[in-house]
């Protein structure tokens, strides 16, 4: 699905990621951890082409991201659901229309019943007419997850999806992601919450990747 080959990313004269090699196989579940500022968000952005590697090669769905046209990047992003750290909503649209946005921009109509089911699944059905600024942090995270899965993408990337929510809500969000993984979706979650990783690993065979000193390594029992 996603394959990094000796990828580096530099910004402002300094190298943020170096020699990163990574393969996300179909149906796999990965955590990406590391201290704040270590490059987790950068790595996620490299996966969906918001950033381009300064060295090495990023292949997504067997295509080099660098070689994709702008329409090609758009088509690729329709196959990847992303839960952004800051959610990235359109504040002038109600929640339901924000969740359906990936369908809207691809020229498809959202089936009302399917949309209602999805909002019920994330527990936001009663809030579907609210606008994003009226929602709490947890509600926004769940709405972002709903938007990420509405196109039934092959890959779901989540950047600190539990960053703004309490433990109970973070468990609920993780259950949703575990459920999606069981449906065959490839999941990559960036988080620095080790307790969350431990509790999830007890339910799903997840691999944990850690960014340390600009390089990516597989975390082991030291978690």
């Amino acid at each position: 699905m996603i394959d990094f080959q000796k990828v580096a990313y530099s910004y402002g004269g300094g190298e943020l990621l170096s020699e990163v090699s990574l393969t996300l196989a179909p149906g796999s579940f990965h955590f990406l951890t590391g201290p704040s500022g270590s490059g987790k968000t950068t790595l996620i952005k490299l996966c969906y082409g918001e950033l381009l590697a300064t060295a090495g090669r990023v292949n997504v769905f067997d295509a080099d991201v660098r070689s994709l046209s702008r329409d090609g990047v758009a088509a690729m992003r329709r196959r990847i659901g992303v839960v952004h750290q800051d959610c990235q909503f359109l504040d002038h649209l109600p929640l339901a229309e924000n969740v359906a946005l990936p369908l809207t921009v691809s020229g498809r109509d959202a089936d009302a019943a399917d949309l209602a089911d999805l909002l019920t699944w994330v527990g936001l059905k009663p809030l579907s007419a609210q606008r994003p600024p009226e929602l709490s942090g947890g509600e926004r995270q769940r709405a972002a997850l709903a938007r990420a899965v509405i196109m039934s993408p092959d890959v779901i990337l989540a950047d600190e999806p539990t960053g703004n929510v309490d433990w109970e809500m973070s468990q609920r969000l993780m259950q949703l992601l575990i459920e999606l993984n069981r449906m065959g979706k490839t999941i990559l979650i960036a988080t620095h919450d080790l307790n969350l990783i431990r509790s999830t690993k007890s339910q799903v065979p997840a691999r944990v990747l850690r960014i340390r000193n600009r390089r990516l390594q597989l975390a082991g029992s030291d978690l």
Partner: peptide, 11 residues
């Protein structure tokens, strides 16, 4: 946001 959710430039 529109680009991130897969909107084409034309759209």
């Amino acid at each position: 946001v529109l680009r991130l959710v897969g909107a084409r430039d034309t759209y």
